[in-house]
Nucleic acid binder design. Structure first.
Lengths: 193, 193
DNA sequence: CGCTATCTGGAACGATCGTCAAAGTATCGC
DNA sequence: GCGATACTTTGACGATCGTTCCAGATAGCG
């Protein structure tokens, strides 16, 4: 019928993600995105419609790549304390992983885009809620087994843990000190005692 | 000698702060700042040199207005638990205070500007460090008096509390639910037990 | 009351913004 | 191999960006 698309859509979104993470939404120009993806601006507009459209695609990929595995890990059926610690350590690793200063797209979007674009706000709420819910199920079960404190509701504990994860992202952006962030995470985990 | 400056510099910085808080750095144009301050662009450039210069002035005012009083409160000599709770409640109030969606300049700057402008990064580190230090002094004293746990060092506890405050800012931007944020803050405070 | 130094607002600068139309190119069914 | 179709590239669009400059306004000094 016609000419087939030559580039990999997912790879383009992937490349765009790095740019948005390091420069933010407003700080990123379509020319930046053209260079990073290797596509002409026409191709980008054909595939995503607009800069906003590409940003939303990036946000969805980010959620799929980082949030979903986290939820899966929490629902893997392993020991509650162990998997939660793993999630925290994984987050610290992600923050201090390389020197490329790629800040968290979720936190960045919360600050820069949530108040401007309702579709971004919806995605952010959905992401944090699914994370909170996975934590809730895990914590409620652990409470029944007497493995963690029952002084606080599983709902509050889950929300607190997500809050701590977001806080680590911010602190990591200010000072990417892996050892310090790890210790802060350890303190957060003591709230389960 | 000559004509005197007609406008109040601090008032201009104040007005500019609201714009930066609601639109971010890149999302704010000089025209936005002109309208908000009521100044011509010439006056702004004469007073601050550049958009960056005005942003730094805004950041300094923000630190002076929010961080400094917080540190003063922590050093007021009152009961550790009480003042720390007061700081957390004050932060939640600030987040959910009005419907104007003014996000925290510190967190916003961490995400959007810290990696681009070294002067911003320095100010952010200085602000969090002075906050951590005030908390450290307060917590170390409380530990000596046996008022809080000694399972964790005062350094780690202080860093954790600042992390939690930053996390509350992010969560508040995603979902400004005062009751929920308050409960998350309460959980964070249980780490002192 | 001029003179002059400084401040003020706004016009105008080149550069870059997000967007899109048009031309060129490659692929498929026939 | 040819027409039809869809993708890619290019460059230019008007708007807006941060910045600068300039003419007019205003205050203190002699």
């Amino acid at each position: 019928m016609a000419r087939t698309r030559e580039f990999d859509l997912d790879a383009a979104v992937d490349a765009a993600m790095d740019v948005f993470r390091s420069k933010g939404y407003e700080g990123t120009s379509m020319r930046d995105l053209s260079e990073a993806t290797g596509l002409g601006s026409g191709s980008i507009y054909a595939a995503f419609g607009s800069k906003d459209g590409l940003y939303l695609a990036v946000l969805d990929l980010y959620r799929q790549r980082y949030a979903t595995p986290m939820v899966d890990l929490l629902r893997s059926g392993n020991d509650a304390r162990a998997v939660i610690r793993e999630v925290f350590i994984g987050t610290v690793d992600d923050i201090t992983g390389d020197g490329r200063h790629l800040s968290c797209l979720i936190v960045g979007a919360s600050m820069e885009r949530a108040h401007q674009d309702v579709r971004v706000a919806e995605r952010l709420r959905s992401t944090t809620q699914s994370l909170e819910l996975a934590l809730y199920d895990l914590l409620a079960e652990a409470q029944l087994r007497g493995q963690i404190t029952t002084d606080r509701s599983a709902t509050d504990l889950a929300g607190f843990l997500v809050t701590s994860l977001q806080g680590l992202r911010v602190m990591g952006a200010i000072n990417p000190d892996r050892a310090a962030l790890t210790r802060y995470a350890e303190v957060a985990l003591t709230c389960l005692d």
